[in-house]
Amino acid sequence: MAENNLNSPADQPRLESERPAVGADLIIPGLAVAFTTYYLIGTASLTWEAKANGVVVGLLLYALVAVQLVRIGLRIARRETTLGFGGLFEMTSPQKQRIALVVITALFIVTLSWVGVAIGLFAAMFASMWALGERDWRSLIGVSLGTTATVYLLFIVFLQLRLPRGPVEYVIAWLTGAGA
């Protein structure tokens, strides 16, 4: 009888390469536990009013993560799954584009205070489109310029948002008085 069951493909222990990887499922619980521990240690010496919520929510979160760990542990013990990360960190072409987008956005934020929103936004739009494979110069320049102009008019001139100003904003303000 047992032999018969093993003949069924669904019941045969799967090869490691065929088993789904659930290691990535532990990233969010790992971050949650790390943050909760940091929060609870940081509030340990405070009055009960300041830490009551953290303790209530944090303990519930620990309990939920523990249940998740037990669940994953049981699946690994039954050889249904592995602790790998699957394709999450694989260096595929879209993954490289994602990393490029994060780096460009970070550079945009870092340089915003010095170059101002007009130059920064134009450069970020241009670089992001290039990183994603756009090679038509008219699109690259036209869309970057159009977006920058729209943001300038809507956010700086109309909504009077105090976005960081740079050389372009100062020159426009000096010439027209707009967004001064």
């Binding site: 987008l101 956005t105 945009f108 936004l121 970020a124 739009m125 992001s128 489109m129 994603l132 494979g133 756009e134 699109s139 869309v143 977006t147 943001v151």
Partner: peptide
């Protein structure tokens, strides 16, 4: 997406 993704991110 090579146009809409940068637009969404920057805006």
């Amino acid at each position: 997406t090579r146009i809409i993704v940068p637009l969404i991110i920057t805006l």
